[in-house]
């Protein structure tokens, strides 16, 4: 068991470093909060003022806003490292690249999770959803979804941070992979917020967890290869 502790400790250090950088300016969080606020507002303009339609589709709008915001946030995640070649420095330290991966995934996931918590009251205001049905389950869905976006997103953002046209590259690579996550997260949120007569929410939660585990492990295996090319 001894070899595992340095990895987790190093991952914790990377995570703390990311939180510190974020906390000093809070620029990234503020930016994506306002970005997704305007996205949610735009959805209601695009669909029209019918409150029943809006309420029925609120989970979809919420996750699309999170998905679009995640592209901005993930792109920034490795851009701050490519300034002054900070990632090269990080790779040269006696830290396993896998620790960087784990730290970065949970750093990005925590940011998205906070964003989703901020967006919840907004969905109540704009779409009149009822959050009180199963609040803990809703938080669980939001957390699993945030991790699911971040796990493949971290690998892809490490790749696209140094490619040309990186702002186009990231969504082009990330969105196809995230389609099952979007399906699972939207369905799980829908059956959490609205009546679930057929008890389907358990299956979708299982699919979300499976997605997270699969992409965490695949990213864990592949990330060292990406990091050694940076």
């Amino acid at each position: 068991m001894t070899p595992k502790i340095p990895l987790l400790a190093a991952a914790w250090l990377v995570l703390k470093k990311d939180w510190q950088i974020e906390w000093r300016t809070r620029a990234r969080l503020t930016a994506i909060i306002f970005f997704s606020l305007s996205t949610l507002l735009l959805f209601s303009f695009a669909v029209g003022p019918d409150i029943n339609t809006l309420r029925a589709h609120a989970p979809g709008y919420l996750w699309l806003a999170l998905l679009f915001a995640s592209v901005l946030s993930l792109g920034e995640s490795f851009r701050i490292e490519s300034e002054n070649q900070a990632l090269t420095g990080l790779v040269l330290t006696p830290v396993e690249p896998r620790a960087i991966f784990v730290g970065k995934v949970f750093g990005n996931a925590s940011l998205l999770f906070v964003l989703s918590l901020v967006l919840l009251p907004v969905t109540v205001a704009l779409y009149d959803v009822d959050l009180s049905r199963a609040p803990l389950q809703l938080v669980l869905v939001l957390f699993l979804g945030s991790v699911g976006i971040s796990a493949p997103g971290t690998v892809y953002s490490a790749i696209s941070a140094n490619a040309r046209a990186r702002d186009v590259m990231l969504p082009l690579l990330l969105f196809p992979v995230l389609i099952p996550l979007l399906l699972a997260a939207v369905s799980a949120t829908r059956f959490t917020l609205q009546p679930d007569p057929q008890e389907q929410v358990g299956g979708w939660l299982k699919l979300l967890t499976a997605f997270d585990l699969i992409y965490l492990s695949v990213g864990f295996l592949l990330f060292p290869k990406v990091a050694e090319e940076d």
């Binding site: 790749i159 992979v177 695949v218 990213g219 592949l222 290869k225 990406v226 050694e228």
Partner: peptide, 11 residues
């Protein structure tokens, strides 16, 4: 080569 290999496996 490396990046596209990783991207291919993820997809």
């Amino acid at each position: 080569a490396t990046w596209s290999a990783v991207a291919a496996i993820l997809s």
